[in-house]
Amino acid sequence: MRTLTPRRIQETLFTAPSFLWLLVLFLVPTLMVVSMSFRTADPYGGIGDSFSLEGFKDIFSPSFPGILFRTVNLSFQTTLWCLALGLPVAYFIARAEKKHQAHLMLLIIIPFWTNFLIRVYAWKIILHPEGMLKDMLVALRLVSEDTSLLYNQGAVLLVLVYTYLPFAVLPLYAAIEKFDFTLIEASRDLGAGPLRSFFRVFLPGISQGIVSAVMVVFIPALGSYVIPDMVGGTDGEMLGNKIAQRVFVDRNLPRGSALSTLLVLAVVLPVIGGLVVKKIRSNGRAFADVPSIGEHGL
């Protein structure tokens, strides 16, 4: 049991508002959504009083596995692209002269000055069947007249990557900026080529940044709604759209809640799993230490 030192009290006072905020505006609503998914729907868009698993019947609809797979797949691909594109950018900025780094970071942040919806609309214009990009590609004979750049999964992936790339660059930049590059020299010195140094020393060295980048891209991508709604056709539909459809079109809150609950679980379970594995591993290591201590009679 920790004693209440003045320092502890101070810490508690300072962190209390944000904990309160998260509790009231985040945890409680999430639990409300979860509980709602186990209720019956009433015909007027409200929720009934009795317990029911009716809300989860979407899971067994024939279209559900496809949408779930598409959601995970698109989020996964978005994450990969953001890492692949974000790493070189973050590396370039982190290795630039100190005085230029702030300017380069500003360039990454500038898109946020424009409203997100407007930027997605801009993509609609760029990718429009009669838009400039299409005309150009047709003129260059790269695509045929009747391909559509818009309203398909490709368009969704493109706009997802566009949207989340800056979020990936920020943690990657922070990690690379802190990375000690004499480690690369040490690795080269010990006989490793550039590629091996990259995979064995550089990537593990910035793993914290990679984990953060994956978190801030993959998790929001899973819950995307606006992007697939606006640039995706029927084959670009994601779980977020399904939830919106249940809530706004069908006016069936329990079914929307049930899907939301699934999405929350899909995000939370892997994180908890990861933590458990890490815990077990470090415990395993602690056990492995015991015989070695005995051996040397310490």
Binding site: D180, E185, D189, A192, G193, G205
Partner: peptide
């Protein structure tokens, strides 16, 4: 020759041990 092809090895001032 690149560093990895040379039969010399370095002890760095800040040690540069791989932290992971």
């Amino acid at each position: 020759l690149p560093p990895n092809k040379r039969k010399v090895n370095t002890v760095f001032q800040n040690y540069a041990l791989f932290p992971h």
